[in-house]
Design a protein around this nucleic acid. Sequence first.
DNA 1: ATGAAACATGAATCACTATTCAGGTAATGG
DNA 2: CCATTACCTGAATAGTGATTCATGTTTCAT
Lengths: 195, 195
Amino acid sequence: MQSKQPKTRRGQHTREQILAAAEQVFGSQGFAAASIAEITREAGVAQGTFYIYFPSKEAVFRELVIEMGHKTRQALSKVIAEVPDRLSAEYVGLRAFLEFVKSHSGLYRIVEEAQFVDPQSYREYFVTFADAYQKRLEQAAMRGDIKCEDPEVIAWALMGLAKGLGERFALWGDERSLDQVATTAFKMISGGLKP
Amino acid sequence: MQSKQPKTRRGQHTREQILAAAEQVFGSQGFAAASIAEITREAGVAQGTFYIYFPSKEAVFRELVIEMGHKTRQALSKVIAEVPDRLSAEYVGLRAFLEFVKSHSGLYRIVEEAQFVDPQSYREYFVTFADAYQKRLEQAAMRGDIKCEDPEVIAWALMGLAKGLGERFALWGDERSLDQVATTAFKMISGGLKP
DNA sequence: ATGAAACATGAATCACTATTCAGGTAATGG
DNA sequence: CCATTACCTGAATAGTGATTCATGTTTCAT
């Protein structure tokens, strides 16, 4: 952790204010257009205060990517735990992901932009995710819940599929309900396109 | 077309040099780290020459996104034309896409970064692509080649799937052959995960 | 061959904003 | 209530690199 942790109640609050402001500003303007001046203004602190807690503009950004990682995994494992077999998990997971993207569009944008701002954290985010996904698929395959010879490829394929739908239907928006999108996609995932 | 077209043979050549240099520099450094100074040095012209043909740094970038659009569609429709039914088209299309990403990684990166540098052209790229894809799916569904109730959703799902695999296996690299990746993913696309 | 239109140059400009820092104020343990 | 650490301020710094422009050079239609 490069970024310094506060040691008093006051400092904790200030740091959180900055982090929240950064999420809002990065999320709506993007990394390049976001300025420390605007972030600190939004947070209600002086510009110098920023550098008490974060060594650079990139550092807050990185911390937000990590935060998003935690939140996403938490949101998904929560809904997946409520469901008995892997195929159902695919459906509720996809639907939950789409809803999550819609309600955290700022953070989602930050993760995507991390690809260019901080590739390391971007990669970590997705590799961590994919590893867990792969394991679940392997177990499901052994149980006979699904047929899946190469779980790594399938994991990345399904993650990509979810990202594609998230970008188009959750971020860009549509009249179509996310539920319907998830249902349609799930039919293909489970049964395939073959007639 | 904001960008001025040259009127002599010499100008044509110069413009092409700049465009090629820009592809190389943006592709390897990213938009922010790329400098006009480096692009023009690479192109073998003075900095001012850049502004004879392009009104801004963003403008070349946009032109490269459009170029990538043409190349991708061309590469894919070529292989798809050689195949009789839609399911086979999905397979060869996916494999060709992965190979295309691998051999045009710079341009691919530019398209992805366009999401943040020039969202308009990013959107145009994918919407154009999706529209064509959707039409093909509709025709295939009518012919009975595939079952597909909501072609728009399926188109975006499959595009996302291809992007996910491309990023992981074509860009980041892997011992695994792209052919094997395509084959595995295709099994899921055509037959589904259900045992 | 010639002059107008195109093209090329590269140093100077100019706006921008991340980061620093010297000089304060608040919190807290003893 | 001190002394010390933690925190805060906001103006100044300082590096950057996109864009401009005044001045040449090349092309090419006539």
